[in-house]
Design a protein around this nucleic acid. Sequence first.
DNA 1: TGACGTTTTTTTATCGCTAAAGATTGAGGG
DNA 2: CCCTCAATCTTTAGCGATAAAAAAACGTCA
Lengths: 341, 341
Amino acid sequence: MNIKRIAELAGVSVATVSRVVNHPERVRDETREHVLSVMQQYNFTPNWFARSLNLESSNTIALLIPGIETDFFQQIISGVETVAGNKEYAVLFGQTNNYPTREAEFVDMMINRKVDGIIQVNSRLNGEETLLMQNLELPRVHIGKNRVCTSDTLCYVDIEEGARRMTRHLIELGHKIIMALFDEANSNTSEQAFAGINRALRDTGHTIIFSSAQAENSVRGGYLAVQRLIQSKSMPEALIAASDLQAIGAMKAARDAHINIPDDLALASLTDSAVCSVLSPALTALELPSKRLGMAAARMLIDQIEGTLPYVDMPHDLILQPKLKIRESCGNTQDIYEWFD
Amino acid sequence: MNIKRIAELAGVSVATVSRVVNHPERVRDETREHVLSVMQQYNFTPNWFARSLNLESSNTIALLIPGIETDFFQQIISGVETVAGNKEYAVLFGQTNNYPTREAEFVDMMINRKVDGIIQVNSRLNGEETLLMQNLELPRVHIGKNRVCTSDTLCYVDIEEGARRMTRHLIELGHKIIMALFDEANSNTSEQAFAGINRALRDTGHTIIFSSAQAENSVRGGYLAVQRLIQSKSMPEALIAASDLQAIGAMKAARDAHINIPDDLALASLTDSAVCSVLSPALTALELPSKRLGMAAARMLIDQIEGTLPYVDMPHDLILQPKLKIRESCGNTQDIYEWFD
DNA sequence: TGACGTTTTTTTATCGCTAAAGATTGAGGG
DNA sequence: CCCTCAATCTTTAGCGATAAAAAAACGTCA
């Protein structure tokens, strides 16, 4: 069923049918009603390819994201889809697995598919590909704190401030030897976390020994890291894990070695999820407003696409604040908050 | 940059450029090389819309899935993307949240976007929409055990057999009062599980009291369900949760009420994930070959699309077997397997 | 009545590509 | 030397929509 057939059946020209779809106000009421009824009767929707070929746009936005396995990313996806869906945009979805080449391939594909805009999460593109995009003037929003082009719009959670507050919390609880686990694959987030930790260390009067170790961001990574620390007899008093999954692994390794949490080791995680509150001890973690992050990014992108940018043409960033959920794993068992909200 | 411009630059006709892309064997070696070099130089890829408009196909497959929040679904997505990517298909992705209307909308959209095939996970469509698709003869594969059309190709994990083995395991450990938590939103899986449980109950010589309760498939759902059981003083000896998330919630509720797992209550989950092995006690769970499921479904779909079906035109199902991972939560602490592989 | 402006509709070029049909080329055979 | 045939290339008609330009319809007023 195509527009031509509908036009015949309705006894009008193709242009009229097209106008019923795209500029209904420029069609006489009577004609419009009639055409609409025929369209409905034959269940007609305009061919999307033909339409996009003409308009050079696809009513689609691309979402390039490292993966879907963490709660943080899932929430972002959910937020983006919610807003995009409401505004009648489809979401084309690319999993980059943190590989710049894969990301670049996706960008090429998205450009070829004439997406109206791109949201990139923790982008790893470097100058060259980015330059390409800059020339295209394709609206885009980055989720993450890495500005690759000066004109980029950024949208991120203030991990630095969160890490600062978490570290201060650990110091307040009396921990003097603190260590952070970081994942090289996500160097950007790590950098922010370090900045925050260092700020907390500087601000305190006490002398704190701080160190860090590389660990894969997964249950297994956390487990192996703590196992290594035990073997090398370099266990800290408090450990900051990069994610709740990593923290869960760390917890298991500690338990296997009869190290009590929080008595012998305080443990905190830079990301939160439903399981954190249910572990024993419940895991103190940073609650990131990840769904709101996705929603905000989508909104900003669509604003750019539709030219309804609230602040004229000046690039602007949006910074959301995380929330420290203090639970049991750092030693503060006095005041434990409700475990689900 | 378009095909016409490339043709000019290479000094050939548009048809030749098109043939270099689509039927390279029908172009003289010399010409082909030359055109390819020009294409490369100007970084040309054929406009996807124009191409698809002609071919009435998009080199895209649709994946309709209830959500992305569980490990099971994530693995399926990963498996589908892996196989599809290798065969140069893009994956268009729709989250149905278990709403039939939303699923039907997606199907409409996918049809309009001329996807070459559809993979539906736990489809909830009923007769009418399905009939529509049947008329279209669009290749499709269902993941899940619900055959909506007689011609459907199915692909699923044998939950029934897994549930049977899990129940037998619980009976062997001496549990006489068994209960299962199920989620109405996923009635199909529940049915299979019940069939398996009943089979195990029938096969045993002992007398077992079995019951079931409705609980949302989430951490919170599991927590609330067990809380309810405690209040109504109807706690069983062994509890089968619909998922690991639900089991985690159940665990928390039990702990809060000073019910010891596994001594006072055996707990097992019908899905496995990385956290299960790391909980304390480690959770006995059914390991579903979910990534392989996704890969198999994608392979079957692409076989259908490309007409390379190994078994001529006879619809056939693929049934994968799950694996019972016996850990600590059911009372068998003698032989605990390695917690990650 | 007819000139004029406004509203509504039709005609037609166009988007970029593919493939069928037609044209060109050169080799081989009578 | 001409004919045939295969290999290779070009011309051109769509694919299904949109929108600009042209045409028709209609009301207003001198």
